[in-house]
Design a protein around this nucleic acid. Structure first.
Lengths: 211, 211
DNA sequence: GTCTATAATATGATAGAC
DNA sequence: GTCTATCATATTATAGAC
């Protein structure tokens, strides 16, 4: 009886659910306290299993951390992947801002963990940064550069524009505490979310519109 | 013989130098690995004293961490403090961007530690955020609002503009690893620094210029 | 002020029964 | 797959001599 078949059995479904529960619990703690500030005890407790059992599914703390990182990288990249050369430039960027702010609202932990990893010099993501991410950014930078060359966008260096979009949209997740301390609101307030999309879009779009 | 006098003796100078060395070493580690990822052993070693001796100057790890935080908060806030109502709006903002990028270049660790603390929900800075920082931001937001009301700046909600400035300028410190992975450069490259100032300024200033 | 123990504890990981 | 020990280690902090 091979256990490598693809069809989900009752057991494999249960296993998958457990893995997901662990990853979820882990993200919660890692994204707030980092890998060092998080104990396997707490993660296990949140995932409602024993620590030993957790170590059965993920053989070490670092393995667990890495699994979480891999998972969130895709969430984080999705909005940029959606940026496409056959859109209207300003429309494309506006849509990007909205999508990324949605990530900041719906998945702030992913954003924060990514930020945490970056702050530490991305010891575990460096390869992905220099490989997959760089390739993606180069591709999208070329799209933007083309728009500029065609006179459909003001003259900007694509990288800096991309950084500004990343930074500004992430800020509402990573610095949510500060945003809330100052404005009294969060992206979960519908009006505040809308207001944020509009203000960010307006400044950036006016800033790169051709005139 | 009272030791409370203000005049710096040979001894008090030596003590001050030691405290500074400790704070420096601590910032280095805290800003990269966080409070949990940093051991007093390493800090002491970097400051070139024994761990016991370190604990003589700062009675606990948390006390040390707090001392470091307090110190960097001022560095971080300085550029915003400089923003003044009697400047030309666009000039003022341009100068702010340059100053903050200088902090990101010359003091990236301060920026990173601040970011780290924020990611964790600012457990130790919450009071300052809601008090001192909020007051400062409210004051500067009023300045910006006035410029808008006078028709000297396009219509923006000051808070969102301030967040964008913070986020964009910090990004080059906090995400330096990513910036370098993608562009191959850092703010220490003179040309790249200049390029960054210009690109960020151009987008933002065009974005909020009155027309 | 600085040092040498050393206490006290947290926590990652493994062994081995079931 | 899951559990009960248990090991091994790192690390904060203190006591007390000098």
């Amino acid at each position: 009886m091979k256990s490598t078949e693809k069809a989900p059995t009752r057991r494999s479904r249960a296993v998958a659910a457990k893995r997901a529960a662990i990853l979820n619990a882990a993200l919660e703690f890692f994204s707030q306290y980092g890998i060092h500030g998080t104990s396997l005890d707490k993660v296990a407790e949140r995932a409602d299993i024993s620590k030993t059992n957790l170590l059965y599914y993920y053989p070490s703390k670092e393995a667990l951390y890495l699994a979480v990182l891999k998972e969130i990288l895709e969430v984080w990249l999705a909005p940029l992947r959606a940026l496409c050369h056959d859109q209207q430039p300003l429309e494309a960027i506006k849509q990007y801002i909205r999508m990324k702010l949605e990530v900041s609202r719906d998945n702030p932990q992913a954003s924060r963990l990514f930020c945490l990893e970056m702050l530490q010099g991305a010891p575990l993501l460096k390869k992905e940064l220099e490989g997959e991410l760089k390739a993606l950014v180069d591709e999208k930078a070329a799209v933007i550069e083309n728009w500029v060359a065609q006179g459909r966008l003001a003259s900007v260096q694509p990288h800096h524009l991309i950084f500004m979009l990343w930074a500004t949209t992430q800020h509402y997740a990573d610095f949510a505490t500060q945003v809330e301390a100052i404005t009294g609101q969060t992206l979960n307030d519908k009006a505040f979310f809308q207001q944020t999309v509009e203000n960010v879009s307006r400044i950036v779009l006016e800033g790169i519109r051709v005139r």
